[in-house]
Computed example of a mutant assay.
Amino acid sequence: MALDPVIHQETRLRLMALLASLGEGAQVEFTWLKEALDLTEGNLSSHLAKLEEAGYVQVEKGYQGRRPRTWVRLTPQGRAAYQAHRQALLELLKGG
């Protein structure tokens, strides 16, 4: 099993782990992610763009009342890729 280079970067790995921990179908606001991971808007945006390009996350823009909002969720493909990457890391750590 190989490590996924898109996920393996530290910030993207933390982002994927956080989204995976929320359960299937859960979505969170961009601002919540930014604060939870202690990232700047630009940094989070660039990492989300890479994950979105790979099909691992879905980013939706909309409004809550009159306020613009951005929601992020892990896709089924992203959940599978994260689980495979996690398993590859565990195997590597076991020495196998």
Rank of each mutant, 00 (worst) to 15 (best):
A2C: 02
A2N: 12
L3V: 10
P5L: 12
P5D: 11
P5G: 06
H8C: 01
Q9M: 01
E10R: 11
L13C: 04
L13F: 10
R14Q: 12
R14G: 07
L15Y: 08
L15S: 10
L15K: 09
M16I: 05
A17C: 10
L19T: 08
A20Y: 15
L22I: 11
A26C: 09
A26Q: 14
Q27I: 10
V28C: 03
V28Q: 08
E29Q: 11
F30Y: 06
W32M: 10
L33R: 05
A36L: 07
A36E: 14
L37D: 02
L39S: 00
T40F: 03
G42M: 08
N43D: 07
N43A: 11
N43K: 12
L44S: 01
S45T: 14
S45V: 05
L48D: 05
A49V: 09
K50L: 15
K50Q: 11
E52I: 03
E52H: 06
E52K: 14
E53L: 11
G55S: 02
Y56N: 01
Q58G: 01
E60R: 14
E60F: 05
Y63I: 03
R66V: 09
R67N: 01
R69Q: 11
T70Q: 12
T70L: 07
W71E: 04
R73F: 06
L74E: 07
T75I: 13
T75N: 10
P76D: 10
Q77M: 13
R79E: 15
R79I: 09
Q83K: 09
R86M: 10
Q87L: 12
L90V: 07
L93Y: 08
G96E: 15
